[in-house]
Write a protein that binds this DNA or RNA. Structure first.
Lengths: 291, 291
DNA sequence: CAAATAGTGTCTCTAAGACAATATCAC
DNA sequence: GTGATATTGTCTTAGAGACACTATTTG
């Protein structure tokens, strides 16, 4: 057994204590991770001289094949194994259920309300991850995977109420949420209508979406949606899609300038002026850590 | 049993499944919360015409009375009970161990490395909380409580290395940390030398401190350190202490203006111009939620 | 050349930092 | 008045948003 951060050798008393200690003597909850995977998909409208115009933010859901909430749509996830960290668990689950290897994951909150799982006490650690459009397309064409992408429409109507609309190929889910308050920049959501989502997954989705928007605003996540080399216009569209805003190219370019590096390459054959391809700049602020 | 977010009645199959389901059949980790409590203490230098000059940021530690890490200093915390959320657990533990009822708590990360607790697999959910100077003084004078305040000195030397110095009444702990990388605005710390702190608590402390600084910069937490009514100078000193910077009063006042409301009251008897007392303004951004 | 997108220059406005000046108390 | 802190005014600078303009490709 490895001990982190010991400044001292273990003494005989401690040895004795530890060999007598039995975790099974105490109540323990189950622990899961849930991984909210986002992608930005561009319209497949390939008419000449017209780039993909409308991008859509999409989230990955799976239809549960087992009790509880059988046949309901749910966020991918699963139980923590005893030999992995929460981050490793999240990555394993998303790989197992979708075949996709995400670039990175970020924590999106812990959910520990007592009644959230009918099987008993289950603590969920939520993560948000980004899947590039390429990977998402590959995944979608793989029939072995029963996960589906749902377009996300997020609306806030007057009175503190949020509507989260998830549009799949043949299904539309519409969850209603309320804002119970703000705690240190994070909204605390409550479910008004789960809209058919399993467990408290409507709340987890809303929280993950809020995390994503925060990080997209500060350019922390928009790069992961695109290939290694990209045009600034594509990057701008990703941010616009996530934040649901419209930006002026001149201003976007000024703001993003410190985060990207030029390459020598250009796009071609699009019927208009070619665009220079850029690459993400590795700054001190983002020592990129792939899990 | 209460089910959150069901759009459907439970059917007979599900009933059957659930009554057959036994959590005990699966491996589960233990789950704890650790609560990093901060306060800002002013110098007790009460010389005439001189307000308290140097404020110090302090953190609450307890000396462990039990194995493992007996006699080591540790962050207050404990195991999750089956009838409480993580937030409730955090508040219960800090109350039990210090008698203090914090205004609010904020999540500061989850720690799930496999070797972090010699007793077995233990997942820690860290929280950061603020204790007002008044409460901290009351607590410190209560002999029943074995928790002690340590002044925090945080230093980053050249090469990615951080030194966390904790100065108590008779003890000084000095932990050394390395930055393994940045992940979405949060540093991932590793222990180089635990400096005598229990478990991986040096890492948790460093993470909590980083969370605190982030939130202090955006005025999200500085109010909790002070009584309901406060002078702007006191507020400024709190921020300066946490961020370890020096600010110009004029600029601080302009920035803080939107977050505070005047009262009719003034300080008096200080040997200089009285200061107006202010109160925190409740904005849309901070629907304050006391747990 | 026309259509379409890529990319630049610059004006305005706001907010932050620096710094100077004024205000008001206890003694 | 003196010493100390409170509070206000304003100059300068950096960055964001708006908008007009130029550039380069394919057909």
């Amino acid at each position: 057994m490895k001990h982190l951060g010991r400044g001292m050798k273990m003494d005989a008393n401690e040895e004795r204590y530890l060999s007598a200690y039995r975790m099974e003597d105490y109540d323990r909850p189950s622990v899961t991770t849930d991984i909210v995977a986002f992608t930005v998909r561009s319209e497949e409208d390939e008419s000449w001289r017209r780039d993909s115009k409308d991008n859509r933010l999409s989230v990955l859901l799976i239809q549960r094949g087992e009790h509880p909430f059988i046949n309901h749509w749910a966020i991918p996830g699963g139980f923590l194994r005893m030999d992995e960290t929460l981050e490793e668990c999240a990555l394993r689950e998303i790989r197992e259920e979708t075949g996709v290897n995400p670039v990175s994951i970020m924590p999106a909150g812990t959910f520990s309300a007592c009644g959230r799982d009918p099987r008993g006490r289950v603590i969920s650690n939520a993560f948000t991850t980004i899947i590039s459009e390429e990977s998402a397309r590959l995944m979608a064409s793989d029939d072995a995977v029963d996960a589906k992408w749902f377009d996300v429409y997020y609306e806030r109507n007057e009175a503190e109420a949020y509507v989260l609309k998830l549009v799949g190929e043949n299904v539309t889910l519409e969850a209603k949420l309320e804002a119970k308050g703000k705690q240190f920049g994070r909204t605390v959501f409550g479910i008004v209508d789960s809209g058919g989502l399993a467990f408290d997954h409507a709340v987890i989705l809303a929280s993950a979406l809020e995390t994503l928007r925060d990080k997209a605003e500060s350019f922390e996540v928009i790069f992961d949606f695109l290939p290694e080399k990209f045009t600034l216009t594509a990057l701008q569209k990703v941010q616009e899609t996530i934040l649901n805003v419209s930006l002026l190219p001149a201003n976007f370019r000024r703001k993003i300038a410190d985060y990207v590096v030029e390459t020598d390459e250009y796009t071609a054959g699009a019927g208009h002026r070619p665009a220079k391809l850029y690459r993400r700049k590795e700054t001190e602020r983002n020592g990129i850590r792939k899990w």
